[in-house]
């Protein structure tokens, strides 16, 4: 294998496998993962809990060794050059991992010192974030709200100006408003030239990424830009709405021309087997042809894999 020298590739993962021993059984966590992530992109790893996102993140951040495969991050071999790598990456684990008995400022100073830098040195990078939590800088991290904890955790992960930022499920359990704000912050970080790899179980966040990989049960279902990805969904899809939604769902489930139907917010999404064929619909049902979204595709791919 040739060492990567092309600087525009931030992460290259080739044929990575990882399994854990649960009880006496060997349970695969990741199966034949291949990924190439361009430098400077905001890359989303999208999949439900337990799909292998965290395992992959830990392997990429040198916290875990894969069973097999090759990983280059920022031009460094993750397995052999982990010491160099650890100076360059920023990692925010899924679980809040700062010191709850230290204040905001103390946490920041501590993490800065870990990387041999200081809060002041890279202040410009975290400034926008920091001003939001600054009024509470003497408050202990354990007493902060979820949204603020998350901002602090991001500040700590950025304090040494990493070239690649790994964010493992930063928006899980966070309300819609804070989630939106968080994604805005990520967009501005991207402008600073930092490659960002973010994982999320929220399918609707896919459209906010430059590129996404869908992951389910340790396998990558697809990698593409969000716009390109949904084009792979070829079945005709409709949004339908009626007076009695539950009844509508139960009835159409039985219809042989229907590939599948499932609730989607105020509508049901109706996926048909063939074009230009519609099921018999009760009166007063509104139906519109729609563009599929990532969640539709994910459901589609999940069922195809099974």
């Amino acid at each position: 294998m040739v060492k990567l020298n092309s600087s525009d590739i931030a992460i290259k993962v080739t044929a990575v496998n990882k399994s854990y021993i649960v009880g006496k059984k060997k349970t695969p966590a990741l199966e034949n993962i291949n990924l190439t992530i361009q430098a400077g992109t905001l890359f989303g790893l999208i999949g439900p809990d337990g799909s292998g996102k965290t395992s992959l993140f830990r392997i990429l951040t040198s916290l875990l060794l894969p069973d097999s495969g090759e990983i280059w991050v920022d031009g460094l071999n993750v397995i052999t050059e982990y010491k160099k790598l650890r100076k360059r990456i920023g990692y925010m684990p899924g679980k809040f991992s700062l010191y709850t008995d230290l204040t905001i400022k103390e946490n920041l100073d501590f993490f800065a010192s870990l990387f041999g830098t200081s809060f002041e040195e890279n202040y410009d990078l975290i400034k926008d974030l920091y001003v939001q939590i600054e009024p509470f800088k003497d408050r202990r991290a354990g007493q902060l709200s979820g949204g603020m904890k998350q901002k602090l955790a991001l500040c700590c992960a950025l304090i040494h100006r990493p070239t690649i930022l790994f964010l493992d499920e930063p928006t899980t359990g966070v309300d819609a408003v804070s989630r939106k704000e968080f994604w805005e912050i990520l967009q501005s970080l991207k402008k600073e030239g930092i490659t960002i790899l973010v994982s999320t179980p929220y399918m609707d966040e896919a459209t906010l990424c430059d590129q996404v990989a869908l992951i389910q049960e340790g396998k990558i279902l697809d990698v593409d830009t969000p716009a390109q990805m949904v084009n792979k969904f070829t079945n005709p899809i409709y949004a339908i709405k009626g007076a009695n939604m539950l009844q509508l769902l139960r009835e159409l489930e039985k219809d042989p021309s229907v590939e599948r139907i499932y609730p989607f917010g105020e509508h049901h999404h109706l996926v048909m087997k063939e074009k230009d064929v519609l099921p018999v619909l009760p009166l007063s049902v509104t139906i519109n042809k729609i563009k599929p979204n990532i969640e539709d595709l994910f459901i589609h791919l999940m069922q195809h894999h099974e």
Binding site: P48, S51, T172, P201, E295, I299, M302
Partner: peptide
């Protein structure tokens, strides 16, 4: 928050 992090199909089965 019964469905946090659950995959889209199971989430619907849950509902």
């Amino acid at each position: 928050e019964p469905t946090g992090g659950v995959d889209p199909i199971t989430r619907r089965e849950f509902w």
